[in-house]
């Protein structure tokens, strides 16, 4: 194989510009009508051209579940792997070939149940992956069992009397795993999702995005209480780095610190109070953790974005150092420390 570059190279600005349709494959999309996945697929296809990365340098890796069919619908390289293991396959792809832009498409069961171990380790290593977790709080492809994000007491096919397992908060898991980029968005708010995915794509290192996604068949209305269009503005807060935490249709509510917790304050939008919290993506992870756990408003946007070297850079750095210190000499290592000659 020819020498590959250590970095993703983008297309020359002067050349032909890719469009969303260039990223659509010839395969029929087979999600249920009305599935939130359609919107996410369309948004990703819309975000990719702007990144300038050639199609052939783009790889989508997935595990198992409804969301994991995603790669088949992208006209890029793609790998539909096995349940929970997408981060491992993607780690191999990215570290073997730093010139590729690698996305991981996963769901709440795939990433947090069977693949929980791989997710946390990919994040702690800061593998340069764009990890999109489609969270619909249910197992869809196996037809309706509770997932690790299902709310406590939820009645499903496998929990007719209600679940007795406390759910995980995906953002909290990512933060605890030292993820360098952690964000949240909603499948029905496309402009905001576009912004968040664009930032994730440009982040160097692991970018983890939880996307609230609706399952029309097995968990319809999964996020309606906060994400439905009529309540979204009042029930969610869009974070912006360096900006006060304000929400509400009329921008008349904000967050203020109260002891170790937050409180919502209402005010006249013309004169917001001075002591509202100001979002800082680089603040200690404990702040993002607290925001992630807040009941209402549910925060959206980039909770945390810090810079640290991704795994492939560190790996290549060691290889370059080893090469500069010692030229590879196959005969020498075959000989080992000591040889003797039989005449």
């Amino acid at each position: 194989m020819a020498d590959v570059k250590d970095e993703i190279e983008t297309l020359p600005a002067s050349g032909p510009v890719l469009q969303a349709k260039d990223f659509k494959s010839d395969q029929m999309v087979r999600w249920c009508p009305g599935c939130g996945d359609f919107a996410i697929l369309a948004t990703v296809q819309k975000v990719l051209p702007g990144l300038g990365v050639p199609r052939e340098k783009t790889v989508f890796v997935s595990g198992i579940g409804c969301s994991s069919r995603f790669p088949y619908y992208m006209n890029t390289y793609g790998f539909h792997s096995i349940h929970g293991r997408a981060p491992t396959v993607a780690t191999g792809v990215k570290c073997a070939r730093p010139d590729l832009m690698v996305w991981v498409i996963t769901g709440d069961g795939d990433a947090l149940s069977i693949g929980g171990n791989h997710l946390i380790h990919a994040l702690r290593r800061n593998v340069d992956l764009k990890i999109l977790l489609f969270n619909n709080r249910i197992y869809g492809l196996t037809k309706g069992q509770y997932s690790p994000t299902s709310e406590l007491g939820k009645k499903t096919k496998s929990s007719p009397m209600g679940t007795i397992d406390a759910p995980l908060n995906p953002i909290a898991v990512a933060l605890a795993s030292e993820a360098s980029f952690v964000a949240r968005a909603i499948d029905t708010d496309l402009p905001f999702l576009t912004d968040v995915l664009g930032r994730a794509a440009r982040h160097k290192g692991s970018a983890f995005v939880e996307i609230f996604q609706n399952c029309v068949v097995f968990n319809d209305g999964a996020w309606d209480s906060v994400a439905a269009k009529d309540v979204r503005d009042e029930k969610t807060l869009k974070l912006a780095h360096g900006r006060p935490m304000i929400f509400g249709k009329n921008r008349d509510k904000g967050l203020r610190q109260k002891g170790f917790d937050f409180e919502v304050v209402s005010f006249d939008p013309a004169s917001p109070p001075q002591d509202l919290l100001v979002h800082d993506e680089q603040a200690p992870a404990t702040a993002a953790y607290a925001l992630a756990h807040m009941g209402e408003p549910v925060v959206q946007g980039v909770l945390r974005c810090v810079s640290r070297p991704p795994l492939h850079e560190l790996m290549n750095g060691q290889i370059e150092r080893a090469k500069s210190e010692k030229a590879p000499d196959l005969q020498k290592i075959l000989n080992g420390p000591e040889t003797w000659t039989v005449a």
């Binding site: 491992t88 780690t91 191999g92 792809v93 073997a96 010692k326 590879p328 290592i333």
Partner: peptide
């Protein structure tokens, strides 16, 4: 010990991740 040959060794989080990474690297041409 043989990184000077361009060898990439990845001590994975478990046995499954170990082979998963190898399958990914193979897909990527290693």
């Amino acid at each position: 010990k043989h990184k000077n040959f361009g060898v990439k060794t990845f001590q994975a989080e478990d046995e499954i991740a170990a082979i998963g990474s190898a399958i990914g690297a193979s897909f990527a041409g290693n």
